[in-house]
Nucleic acid binder design. Sequence first.
DNA 1: AGCCTTCCCTAACATACATCAAGCAGAATA
DNA 2: TATTCTGCTTGATGTATGTTAGGGAAGGCT
Lengths: 189, 189
Amino acid sequence: MQSAILNHISKDIHLTKEEQEEFLSILSEKKLGKKELLIKPGDSVTSEYYVVSGCLKAYYLDENGHKHIIQFAVEDWWISDFEAFFNNAPAQLYLETIEESVLLEIQKDALEVLYQRIPKFERFFRLKITGAFVSLRSRILSSLQMNSKQRYLEFCNSYPNIEKRVPNYHIANYLGIQPESLSRIRKEL
Amino acid sequence: MQSAILNHISKDIHLTKEEQEEFLSILSEKKLGKKELLIKPGDSVTSEYYVVSGCLKAYYLDENGHKHIIQFAVEDWWISDFEAFFNNAPAQLYLETIEESVLLEIQKDALEVLYQRIPKFERFFRLKITGAFVSLRSRILSSLQMNSKQRYLEFCNSYPNIEKRVPNYHIANYLGIQPESLSRIRKEL
DNA sequence: AGCCTTCCCTAACATACATCAAGCAGAATA
DNA sequence: TATTCTGCTTGATGTATGTTAGGGAAGGCT
């Protein structure tokens, strides 16, 4: 389990044994069952989470009671309400498991200390943010230039490990279409 | 002109006089006329730009020849093809002025040196990235939960300094709707 | 095993927006 | 000043998707 996150990190930065130990010392494990809430609106968001195993969704509930999934997360991914995390603001999103999940939690305070002690982690987490930025930009560009069918196919190609594990109506929701529309699209394939 | 960017930065980090001088020394000024290209696809993106005055758009040209504006930038904002900039990749976007503009250019190499010499700038540019991430996330959430009229109103409220300076068909394009639809929306207001 | 819940599909009809076409007004240019 | 260009609006028609309603299959629970 700890080897998962060390492998993940070693793709971007090289750590000494001591640095690894120090990093691991600030992680705490969290086991969640299916459909369990990790964060809800109004919560103080003091952590971000690395997914060791399982699958989660981050969604927003609008004033009409409609859910809008804005992010999935599976193994090797990070999840939080990042806006709240970055800005020391209360959460706006629900974070909920789709499957039983095991997460590693990093507290923001501990992270700031880590940055001081091992500056390489500035780089690592900056790469995570820029990667997230790139992903969101790509998503916006896709929605500007593609129809729903093309976007569904792109989703399946880009995220097969999500597509096979989450219900289709979740995917429809993430794409901003109704499940009925997704059924029609899939019928044409 | 240099006071503009120093004011901009002083909102987030405090610099000594020496630090200010060092920062200013890595900036170079760029003056562009209306409809001038700053970056085009395939270009090597080695810089990001601070807008001192003027207004720009970043757009993608799809394989059918359709333009999709993904970002505007006005005074006090930053612009680049950030994906290319972050990833040392060739540009995918066109960056083009909408008005005559004055920019301050920062080369990526100089920025990396700056990070070493004045680590505060790590924090400053991390705040810029996280701010950009938050803005993109907000945009996706809006497009998931609002209709085009609501999104147009939100755009006008959030970015009045863009709305009054760019043609309506640009705004329509940015919102992912046709100019005719925007005309109809505006008629209802 | 029976029942309930969850997920998916289908059809009919309604709605939002795209597409095509044209006209007008104001600004820019020769 | 006359012409051209740019930006915007309008109407008719078409298309993609939303909404409503219902049914069926698979999995989970008692």
